[in-house]
Design a protein around this nucleic acid. Structure first.
Lengths: 330, 330
DNA sequence: AAACGCGTTGCATACGAATGCAAAACATGT
DNA sequence: ACATGTTTTGCATTCGTATGCAACGCGTTT
């Protein structure tokens, strides 16, 4: 047993009250008189007492912990999201328990997070396996997809208007006279990729155009470098490329300039998605679609807490407005 | 009460054994016969039972949770560190509970993390308030500083050989003929900054040189932009700048090229510290000192678990070798 | 057959706080 | 004064699991 653990019983003894009184003092809205509360607080202060969150969680069923699952953090958008999410949760008295999943390993991770009686599960840019969804459904744990959407109604979703964002890029390219517009996809199984691409195609179609080239890079920097190389080596180069996120767009710009000696945007315009901090840095000056990480996380926390508090039972999807940020790259 | 919570008692009933048998089945090294274990596992599987980590933590004192405290995640080195740390902890059966602190707010955050009976506290690039140190000492919670050092022996530390790294940069600058070497500092209260700067100065001194200019940018991108502007606007420009980390170095390079139209490294050489992924990207090609995030986190987890298991009681400091990565920027 | 040892098993309790219930204390009305 | 209503308080129990202790079964030895 660790030394120096002060329990509510210790405080009770010192304040000459029952353990219940101590508990009630630390339970907002419980029935305690002003005097006893004061005495308890005094004793607690003197002893350095703080209620044991684990014991509290056991009896109340409120662990005040939220699991956050990531596959990777390389894309600079995720740390930003994580930081804001963490702050927003803290502000509401919740605490994020972090899990990294490998593609194969997901089941193991899920089992572990269930063990901790988390009150919610946030999947960041990850696809929800139906197995996971049903398991969480059985336990009544609300699931929220951040930066992804699902149609089956098993989880809440918070994302930006990816379709609209894709359309904005198409229109911008067309308005600035681009004719041969290409797309470099992220993970083809992800809703974000699907919607961004669909938006782009919709915009093109409206102007009687069609996609000039297409490649898949799975939201991965190295793969983006490779497919950009291949795309530029082809006979008929695009004059504009919409890359499914900023992180890959940086790789594409590097290839255009560094490997092929071409100019951005003169020879080839490039647009990304996310508006990560690096997008505004001098070498890139990336035209991109901004999705506000603050708005996303604030809404995510709101949805989660509403579901936890039982105010809302049904999962809900929130689609936030996207904004085109025009910089030098397009 | 949430529906669908299966307890060890439920499993015991189904397997026709006592609750103790179920518990022992899931406690490695406990005394259970092969047969009962098999029956329990079968029943557990059928019911979908998993031991409640919170209840387990209460009785055993092993929450298997580690608190990780960050001040910010902008610097790309931290997400990398966080990801590796999280994976390494998971592999050992621990789980990181994440806390973001604002500079003022630190005490509140610390109180909250203590409530969760975490078995260790990792401070990432944060200075350890003596208050925090003593409080953790009283509760017997090992504290570890990641990417920072402290001399008072109250916490374990894992960092790279920042002094050596600074010296390497000095030597490289000198060997490549630089005469007017400047330093842009991070947070002056941080050990990393102190050591990197001391290393640089030591290297200069050995060759009879001294620092040509100096500014402080607190590991902040915007501040780095500002002080770089000021430094370059001065009469006698440096011909080499050692920036205390990569994240600021990117800002400095942007200023050199974009605001002043100068060339890196022809006019001014720039070196950073960390070797974040972005350092190898085409626009920067940053010469920098690599500190291996894998090595840092592996050692951190090792130290922590040793202290938790009681194999080692005294805090320990591990200083990992640094490696100069020469790229085009210097 | 009795004595011994060892591996299993169940009982009962503990961890630390929250809460339903009933007793107690207090305030209010007539 | 008494009856009534309201707040405050403590007792006892609960959450779900781990574990010390004693009992038990079984095999081995003398």
């Amino acid at each position: 047993m660790r030394k120096g653990i002060i329990t509510s019983a210790d405080v009770a003894r010192m304040a000459e009250v029952s353990q219940s009184a101590v508990s009630r003092t630390f339970t907002p809205g419980a029935s305690v008189s002003k005097e006893t509360k004061a005495r308890v607080l005094e004793a607690a202060e003197a002893l350095g007492y703080r209620p044991n969150a684990l014991a509290r969680a056991m009896i109340s069923g409120q662990s005040k912990m939220i699991a956050m699952m990531f596959a990777y953090l390389e894309n600079q958008f995720y740390p930003v999201l994580l930081e804001h999410m963490c702050r927003a949760l803290q502000a509401k008295g919740y605490h994020p328990l972090l899990f990294m999943t490998e593609t194969g390993n997901q089941d193991d991770v899920v089992r572990r997070l269930m063990d901790y009686q988390v009150q919610g599960l946030v999947l960041v840019s990850a696809t929800l396996s139906s197995d996971l969804a049903t398991r969480c459904g059985e336990l009544g744990i609300p699931v929220l997809l951040l930066n992804r959407e699902t149609e089956d109604g098993t989880a809440s979703c918070v994302a930006s208007d990816n379709f609209g964002g894709g359309r904005m890029v198409a229109e911008h390219f067309i308005n600035t006279g681009r004719k041969k517009i290409a797309y470099i996809a992220g993970d083809e199984n992800s809703s974000t990729n699907r919607d961004r691409e669909a938006g782009l195609l919709s915009g093109l179609k409206e102007h009687g155009m069609q996609l000039h080239a297409r490649a898949v890079a799975n939201y991965n920097h190295d793969q983006a470098t490779q497919v950009a190389n291949a795309m530029l080596a082809a006979d008929d180069r695009p004059d504009a490329i919409f890359v499914a996120n900023d992180y890959m767009a940086f790789a594409v710009i590097d290839v255009i300039r560094d490997k092929f000696g071409l100019s951005v945007p003169k020879d080839i315009a490039v647009a990304g998605y996310d508006d990560v901090p690096e997008a505004s840095w001098a070498p890139y000056q990336l035209t991109t679609v901004r999705q506000s990480s603050e708005a996303m996380t604030d809404n995510a926390v709101m949805l989660l807490t509403e579901q936890i508090d039982g105010k809302r039972v049904e999962p809900q999807t929130i689609r936030l407005p996207a904004e085109l940020i025009v910089r030098a790259s397009a």
